[in-house]
Write a protein that binds this DNA or RNA. Structure first.
Lengths: 112, 112
DNA sequence: TTGACATATGCTTATATACGAATATATTAC
DNA sequence: GTAATATATTCGTATATAAGCATATGTCAA
C-alpha cells in the first residue's frame, strides 16, 4: 500500500508546507487565487492544485465572484488536529512533566 | 518533485494514522515494541518502521532495556503542531467568528 | 554453543504525489 | 466575435512511501 492520499484528511493535507502557507494567508481574510499566488513563491497552477486538495478535505471553501474565485478558510476543519495534539499538551508542561516522571517511575516499580 | 518525506517533520510523520495510534499508546507510558504490537493490528516489522520514522523526527525516543527496546513519547516535538493550529483557534469560536465576519466585511468595503 | 525471544532491516509492489510546462475553460471588456 | 484576464486541468517525471514477507541482528538462558 502507498502513503495515504493528501486528500485523506486534514492531517495529510496540512503536512505539505506550501499548503500550510496558503492556510496562513487565508487566516486573515478571503483571498482570490491570484492574491495567494502573489503572496508566495509558487506558480498559479500549483496554487490551484493545492487549493483543490485543501478544498477536498474541507480546510477551505470557495465562491465565485466574477471571473475570480475567492477562497476562505474553514477553521473548524482544523479542530480535529487541534484536539488531537491538545491531548498531549500536559506532557510538555514542565511542572506536570516532573510529576509524570515520578508517577511513571512509581508505576514501573510497582509492576515489578 | 515528490511528496515531502515522512521524516521531514512532525507534521508529515503524524499524518499517518497508524503512527498517530502509536503516539497515543505512548501517551500513557513507555512501551516496548511488542507491547505496541499487541495494542494495535499491525505486524512487528511495521511497528518498528513506524517507530523509526517517529524517532527520526523526534516524536519518540528509545532506550535499551535488556533485549527489549523501550520507546517513549517526547511530547515537546508535537508543540510546533499545536502552536500552528492554535493560531486559528479563535476562528472556530462562534462568537468571535461573527465579529470577524463583521470586521472582514468592513475591511473589504474600505478597500474598494 | 544452541535455542528462544525481541527488534530491525532488506526486498518487492502498488500507488500517490509535487512540480514544471502547456493547455483548457470560464468570464468580462471592447 | 476577439482579446484579455482569472483559474483549472492535463501530462510527464522523479521520488517516496506502507504493507507483506523473509531474514538479519542482538540478547539472554541453559
Amino acid at each position: 500500500m502507498a502513503r495515504a492520499a493528501t486528500t485523506a484528511d486534514a492531517f495529510n493535507a496540512i503536512a505539505e508546507p506550501r499548503r500550510r502557507e496558503i492556510v496562513e494567508l487565508l487566516g486573515d481574510r478571503e483571498l482570490s487565487v491570484n492574491e495567494i499566488v502573489g503572496g508566495m513563491p509558487l506558480s498559479q497552477p500549483q496554487v490551484s492544485k493545492h487549493l483543490h486538495v485543501l478544498k477536498e478535505v474541507g480546510v477551505v471553501q470557495s465562491r465565485k465572484d466574477g471571473r475570480q474565485r475567492l477562497y476562505r478558510l474553514d477553521a473548524t476543519s482544523l479542530r480535529p488536529i487541534h484536539d488531537w495534539v491538545s491531548g498531549f499538551e500536559r506532557l510538555w508542561n514542565e511542572r506536570l512533566d516532573r510529576l509524570d516522571s515520578y508517577l511513571d517511575e512509581a508505576q514501573r516499580k510497582e509492576m515489578r
